Simulated scan of single mutants.
Amino acid sequence: MCFLLTVYNGFHQSSDVVKNLFNNLFINKSYNKQVRPINDQNATIIVTVDFELFSNHDFDEVAEKIAVSGNLEVIWWDDQLVWNRSAYNDIYDMLLLQDMIWKPDVVLKNGYNKFEELGGSFYYVIVNHNGLVAWYPYHMFESKCSMDVTFYPFDEQNCHVIFIIWSYRYYKVGFYPDSK
């Protein structure tokens, strides 16, 4: 038990080291979230997405609506958020508020009532030392769903929850399902 505590204590980061890393990324390098985070601005940023369904909240045949809760796993690389781990006491990754960095503006294309960007000011992203960014926005999704109840109660319905990147054209930001 003592051995584990000693090993674990060896990996704590001082706040000064974390502050230095933060200052280097956001102040010294002048990070700007309005600029696509890729060194070659003619290249396409590849964003992958995966959806994890938590629960089905509503299935309304008359209104042709489905409501589910879940979160997306959205992954991309940010060339401006890369650091040398050995220079910062081996910091592997850090949590940042999503509003601090560039992120794709993901929206539910076939939303039932509202059309809004996912996420919120209280969501965090995980940024690895190599620039890999992972974002997990959770939401209650209400989607339109055309239904055919001709053979009720033996019918089958296929409903789609469709996400898109709203502002960027496909040659600026490629948005693809994760191939796990």
Rank of each mutant, 00 (worst) to 15 (best):
K33V: 09
V49G: 13
L25R: 05
L21A: 05
Q34Y: 14
L53R: 05
N32L: 02
N56L: 14
F26E: 02
R36V: 09
T48S: 15
P37W: 03
Y31I: 02
I38R: 04
N56Q: 15
N23Y: 11
F54C: 13
H57Q: 13
Q34G: 10
I38A: 10
N23F: 04
P37V: 03
D58M: 13
K29T: 05
F51N: 10
I46L: 13
T48N: 12
N39V: 05
N32W: 01
F54Q: 15
P37Y: 03
K33C: 12
N56C: 12
E52T: 12
S55V: 10
L25C: 04
I38M: 04
A43N: 08
I38P: 01
I27Q: 06
N20M: 03
Q34W: 09
I38G: 00
H57V: 11
D40C: 03
K33W: 12
D50I: 14
N39P: 04
I38D: 00
S55N: 15
V35E: 00
Q34L: 14
N42C: 02
R36G: 04
Q41Y: 01
V49R: 08
N56H: 10
N23P: 00
I27H: 08
D40S: 13
F51I: 15
K33P: 09
V47D: 00
V47M: 00
F51W: 15
I38E: 04
N28H: 11
N23D: 13
F51R: 08
T44P: 07
N20Y: 00
N23M: 03
F26Y: 10
N56D: 14
T44D: 05
L25W: 09
S30D: 12
P37E: 02
N32V: 01
F26T: 02
L53W: 07
P37D: 00
E52Q: 14
N42P: 01
E52W: 07
I27L: 09
F22Y: 14
Y31R: 06
I27T: 12
Q34D: 08
N39W: 11
Y31F: 04
V47G: 02
D40M: 09
L53C: 06
K33I: 14
K33G: 09
N42G: 03
L21C: 08
N24I: 11
T48V: 09
N56G: 11
N20E: 02
N32I: 03
N42T: 10
T48P: 11
A43C: 00
Y31Q: 08
N42A: 03
F22P: 01
D50W: 09
F26P: 02
V49Y: 08
K29F: 03
F54S: 10
Q41G: 00
N42D: 05
N39F: 13
A43D: 12
S30L: 15
E52Y: 07
D50H: 12
N24R: 10
S30C: 13
N28T: 06
L21M: 13
N28L: 11
N32T: 01
D50A: 08
N39Y: 06
I38H: 03
P37L: 07
S30P: 05
V35G: 01
N23W: 07
V47W: 00
N32E: 02
Y31W: 05
N28E: 09
